[in-house]
Structure formats: C-alpha cells, structure tokens
Computed example of a mutant assay.
Amino acid sequence: MNKTPLTFRPYFLPISFQLDRRFPLAIALLVVLTLGAMIISLGVGEFFMPPLEILQTLLGLNDNGDASFVLLTLRLPRILVAWLVGMGLAIAGTIIQSLTRNPLAEPGIIGINSGAALAAVSLLIIFPSVSATILPFAAFGGALVVTVLIYLMAWQGGSSPLRLILVGIGFNLVAAALTNLLVTFGNINQVSQALVWLAGSVYGRGWEQAIALLPWLLGGSAAAWLMSKELNGFNLGDDLARGLGISIEIRRALLILTSTALAGASVATAGSISFVGLIAPHIARQWVGNVHQSLLPTAALTGGCLVVAADLVGRILFAPLELPCGIITAILGAPYFLYLLIKKR
C-alpha cells in the first residue's frame, strides 16, 4: 500500500534550529544599508556635515562646538530612536504574524498599537509635563489592557488565531475612536502635541527617549529569541504544536505579552508609525526564509533600516519642512498591504 508523504504549506516552519545560508549575507547587507542611511541622515540638514567631519566629531577629534551640538545632541539620538523603534515594531509584527498564522496581521491592525496610543495620548493631554521615562509604561499598560480584553473575548475553550484577529480589529476601531474623542476635547497646546505624536515622528527625540526605550527593546528581543522555536511550532498549527509538546496557551500568552511590550514602548516613544510590523517580516522572509532563529534578527534590522530611511526621506523631501516618518511608512505600507491582500486572497 502506497503511503502519501506528509507535506506542509510553504508558510509552515520546521521546529529545528536551521539557519538559512543567506542569513549572514542579509545581516551584512542590512548593516551596510542602515549605516549608510544613518551617515547621510547625520550629515544632511541646515547644518551640513561631510562624512569625514562626522567621523571626527564622533571620535572627539573636532573642536567645533556647533558641529558637536548638532550631531551629538540633535541628530544622533533621533536616529538611534528611529532605529530602535523600527526594530521593536518589526519584532512585534513577526510575533503576531506567526501566532495568528496570518501574513496580514501586525500590532497596528489588531489593536495593540491603538491601545498604546490611547493611553499615551491620555497622558499627554491630561498630564502634559509627564517624563519620557513614564510614557512607555503608560503605553505598555494601555496596550496590555487592550490585549487582555482581546484575549478574553476571543477565548472559547481556547484562543483561536482567527478570533484574535477579528476581535482585535474591533478593539482597534474603539481605541482609535476614543483617542479622537480626547483630541477633540483637549487643550489646544496638548492637542497639537498629541496630533504630531499620533502621526508618528521621531522629531525632537533625544537621549532620554533612547535610554528609556532601550531596556524594553532588549528585554522583548531576548524573550522573543528564547521562544523562537515555539514560534516555529505555532506555524505548524495548534494541533501539531501541541503534539510536539508546546504549551499552546501559556506560550501564546507570553508571546503576545512580549509583542505588546515591544509595540507599546515603541508607540510611546515615536507615536503610531504604521505598517513597519507588516512590511519588515515579509521582506525578511524573502531573504532568509521562515525559521525564526534567523527571521527575528533579520526582521528587526529591516524594521530599523526602514524607519531610519523613512525619517531621512521625511526630512529632505520638502526641506526645510519635515514630514513625520509615520506618513512615509504609511505611503509605502498601504499599497503593500493591498498587494498582500490580493496575493494572499
């Protein structure tokens, strides 16, 4: 009797640790692209700086006080914040896509970003003098509340990826409506600040924001990496993952919590920068495949490069006016989302 071999759809992943041969090349390429975008971003602006002067200033060999102030106080922390935010959103998006087994899912679509934005905008409008170190905790709290509500409402003897997405879309709309309500009735000064923040921008971000975001990114990235094999298992489906010994509900809850922390802290720092969590994982999959041990770092570097490049484009496109990087990512992401929607049927 002939036995038909068991086959899986291409989106499914192996459990074993198996790095793609293209992984080192992809990482090297992303590092070069990111450093190139950073160097250009450090140099362009009203105060132009050539690469050699940038290097001398970074090494402390330049006695020009204006150059040091512009580079080390204004531009460098802003670029680092953009890089960290992009990585956080990309890792969060990779986790959500794997948990839901849906290539169109990302924290912004299922309500996590909206919950973080609602909490952060509430804090900005009600307590305008709040410290930058407090804002990530507030955003994480808002994202966590929405995530718990989504998880509870999607629970029917277990958590279904499809129910999580559908309930998340509903909470996304509710949180966005409440945010708009706060903006409508807030003080004009606080509302202006909140609107700029909602557009998604790293303008004016300094070392305080970069230092506040760093531990959230390090902790979330480490947690995602430690559970990368479980993420591989989730893409096999709940039944097969359970048969492989994965505690489905516990691991899913921990991974959702990790994604919530990364997305919440990123949104609190730079506002609602949309579609990075959608685009970066797909680009990374094209380069290194679907194994999360290589996918997670590749997606993280891709997301960081995307936001740094988007901020650079926003600065030079209509200079001296600046477009928020969230607008640039939305211009790129919306058509890409429609393309994926048609391609994935």
Rank of each mutant, 00 (worst) to 15 (best):
G93H: 04
E249Q: 14
P335L: 11
L240M: 14
A117M: 13
G233M: 13
L262N: 01
F337S: 05
L61A: 13
T4K: 11
V288R: 04
I327Q: 01
T34N: 13
I112R: 02
L218W: 07
Q293F: 11
L164R: 09
G170M: 10
L52Y: 05
A120M: 09
E53F: 03
V121T: 06
R163S: 11
I15Q: 08
R101W: 02
L254Q: 12
I165C: 05
T7Q: 11
V288I: 15
G289P: 03
P335Q: 08
T269G: 10
S247E: 13
L295I: 03
I331E: 09
L61N: 09
V267L: 08
F47E: 12
I169V: 15
G219I: 13
M38H: 06
L123H: 02
T269I: 12
Y336N: 08
R251S: 15
A176N: 15
Q156D: 08
K229P: 01
I169L: 10
V308M: 10
I91T: 07
S228R: 14
P51D: 03
G333H: 07
A132I: 11
A26R: 09
D20T: 00
S259A: 15
V267D: 08
A175E: 00
S16Q: 12
A143D: 01
T133R: 09
E46Y: 10
A177W: 11
G264P: 01
F23W: 14
V308Q: 00
F137I: 13
A67I: 01
A284K: 00
L76G: 09
L255N: 08
L278H: 05
T57V: 11
V145D: 01
N189C: 02
L13W: 01
R205H: 05
A300L: 07
A319P: 03
G168E: 04
A284S: 12
A37F: 07
V121K: 08
A261L: 15
W207H: 12
L341M: 14
T34M: 07
V276W: 02
Q286D: 11
G108M: 03
M87A: 15
G45D: 10
A138M: 08
M38D: 06
L296A: 10
L33V: 09
S68P: 08
P335D: 11
L278G: 06
V167D: 10
I283P: 04
I250S: 12
T258K: 00
G277C: 05
L236W: 02
A222C: 14
I150A: 05
E53I: 06
W197V: 09
E53T: 12
R242W: 04
Q97F: 02
I112S: 02
P215E: 02
L341P: 00
I110K: 06
L178S: 01
M153Y: 09
S228F: 03
I27N: 01
S131H: 13
I165Y: 04
A224H: 05
